[in-house]
Design a protein around this nucleic acid. Structure first.
Lengths: 213, 213
DNA sequence: GACCTGGTAGTCAAGTTTGAGTACCAGGGA
DNA sequence: TCCCTGGTACTCAAACTTGACTACCAGGTC
């Protein structure tokens, strides 16, 4: 599973209603073009595809005031919201060595409750540990390590990555347990999108958390 | 860049001449179906595509003795070998957060000389460190960290992964400097493919390094 | 007044990946 | 003998991704 659907659904959801270019800008604002496949083509494709599948509703809009071609605005449906939450939970839980999926999920983790987030992350740690056990048992059989030659370095690398991922996840769990961040149902949420007409992102060096949706 | 081309070129090269199913079996033998997108469709597509691009020569073969449809055998060309080495060097050097690309490169690293491998890996470490500096400077601007809210965890995760990757690479450099493994020009190479008629891989729990190509 | 840059918004063809097939044969039961 | 499993070898449609491209307008500039 790629991260694009989660990112797009999450972006549309935070806006309530958004057109492709807006989503594209949000993802850039989050840096997603650096750590995921959030290119224009993928974003527009995902929007169309998910509209076809009933997760978004497409509204045709007259050519905008600022010029350019006619836009299509998208609104998330109940089915889309379900899909969003499913993807989010899966992405937090499952260890599939795809850093972009986890990154995307981190951006939305506060849409869940604090307790649920902690449970999912703890399941993630358990998953990594199980995976580690399975791999080391399967690939270092009777005749001991070293028989693999340099091929063993591949496994070594996986295992190192898994350990590092587990360690990081435990750190995050501690921070969340310690009260960090504002989760669902804990008051004014942190807003990470650009509202219509807001200035460019990091070029100003400042975020504007004052305009909730 | 995905790992599939490197994997397929490397597999064909080790055999001298191979058909798709053989490549597919090798990749499974290496565990590549677990850490890369080495599915049948991708493998056959890569073979066809690279044949079209002159990196492989396709030979049509009569239906094999053991039944099944007619096979196509592929042979690597000079251009293909150049591409293979280029991909291999790039994959070792560049830090693009794609673990499958590095894993594939590790499987072939001994096709280079020991000195060159060390240089490439040291460049990899330098690349990771530069990337880390750039990211931390860009995303933690004037008003300090913490302004990012939970979004900062994304960056935290990237940085943690980068540090872990650098540390692992330094470890590998030490092992190689310490004389581990047999590199190009250092005698009988380690052979990691199944020759025609060899038994199944890990099901027997034993490797057969006795039949060189 | 013509041109050029830059932002807005999106399209398209080509390439890649996925998952589910297809076709064939051998060997082993019932 | 008929069917069923399992291995060999590959194909295909549908989905996804990529990179380059289009089209439009505003505002400056020469």
């Amino acid at each position: 599973m790629s991260a694009i659907r989660l990112l797009v659904l999450g972006a549309v959801r935070q806006h309530g209603r958004a057109h492709g270019y807006q989503v594209r800008n949000d993802l850039e604002y989050w840096g997603a073009h650096e750590w995921s496949n959030a290119k224009p083509g993928s974003i527009y494709h995902a929007l169309k595809q998910m509209a076809k599948q009933g997760m978004l509703i497409a509204h045709e809009i007259a050519p905008s005031t600022v010029g350019g071609p006619p836009r299509t605005e998208y609104e998330i449906t109940e089915k889309g919201t379900q899909e969003y939450l499913t993807l989010l939970r899966e992405s937090l839980t499952s260890y599939d060595q795809k850093p972009d999926v986890l990154s995307a999920a981190l951006g939305f983790v506060v849409d869940l409750g604090r307790e649920e987030a902690l449970e999912l992350l703890e399941e993630r740690v358990r998953g990594i540990e199980e995976w580690r056990t399975a791999v080391t048992e399967h690939y270092v059989p009777a005749d001991g390590p070293g028989q693999l030659g340099h091929i063993g370095e591949i496994m070594n690398f996986w295992v190192h990555s898994a350990d590092s991922g587990a360690e990081w996840t435990r750190g995050l769990i501690q921070r969340i347990k310690g009260g960090a961040y504002t989760f669902a149902g804990e008051g004014e949420p942190f807003v990470g999108v650009l509202s219509a007409g807001e200035e460019n992102p990091y070029s100003t060096g400042e975020t504007h958390p004052e305009d909730a949706e």
